Amino acid sequence: MKRLLLTSFLVFTSIILHAQDQKWSVEANYPFTLDDGTFSNNDGAIDLGIKYRFFRTDLVRLGLDLNGGFVYDKAGNNNEDTFKSKTYLFQPKLFAEFSVPFAPKWHPMVGVGYSVVSNNFSGSISGTDFSDRSGADGGFNFDIGISYDISSRFFLQLKYDMILLQVKDEVVFDNERINIDFRENIDRLKIGVGFRF
């Protein structure tokens, strides 16, 4: 078993180190919310992604970007509030990554896609019970950013991520059903690291 694991590790490492055209990359980001809306009071957040580049010229690479994120939030103005929310994001996108001839380590990028935002609420806030509520919303997603190559494999990146979220829900407040239907812009800044292979 140890030989099989060692052999698998060596083959995988050899493929990564000898790849001529690095079509794949993985990344890990920490997102910051820039406005007072969804995700603004998060107590924990992470954003992970994988990219595949399927078209390349000297100046641009086109590809698919699959990002997933998690945000944990507990809010409340007093000790009686027990509200907690867990939010999961799934963000498939098409992206373009550009080469800058006079600055070969810098790579501007732009992406367009759709975000699915799934929420799971529990507890109460200001006397309103949110126990075991969940739902999913979605909306258009746009991002723009830049990466900097530390080496041929590792890079740092900074991205601005905008989600035009369409929120639809139904809540009960004082025994009255209230339909919720509104649009919300979520602006986030992501700082992260990545690895190409």
Rank of each mutant, 00 (worst) to 15 (best):
L4W: 13
T7D: 09
I16A: 15
I16K: 03
L17F: 07
H18S: 14
A19C: 13
Q22N: 15
W24D: 07
E27C: 09
N29A: 12
T33D: 06
T38H: 05
F39G: 08
N42F: 02
N42A: 07
N42D: 13
G44R: 02
D47T: 09
G49T: 02
R53T: 08
F55A: 12
T57F: 02
L59Y: 04
L59A: 12
V60I: 07
R61S: 14
G68S: 15
G69A: 11
Y72M: 11
N78P: 10
D81R: 01
T82F: 02
S85T: 04
K86I: 07
T87R: 01
F90K: 03
Q91F: 03
S99R: 07
A103V: 07
H107G: 11
P108E: 15
G113W: 01
Y114S: 04
Y114D: 15
S115D: 11
V117Q: 05
S122Q: 05
I125N: 01
T128F: 11
R133K: 12
F140A: 14
N141P: 08
D143V: 10
D143A: 08
S147D: 07
S147G: 12
I150G: 05
I150F: 03
S151Q: 11
S152D: 15
F154V: 13
F154H: 05
I163C: 08
V167Y: 02
V167P: 04
K168P: 06
D169S: 04
D169K: 03
D169W: 00
V171I: 05
F173V: 15
I178A: 11
N179F: 03
I186N: 09
D187W: 08
R196N: 09
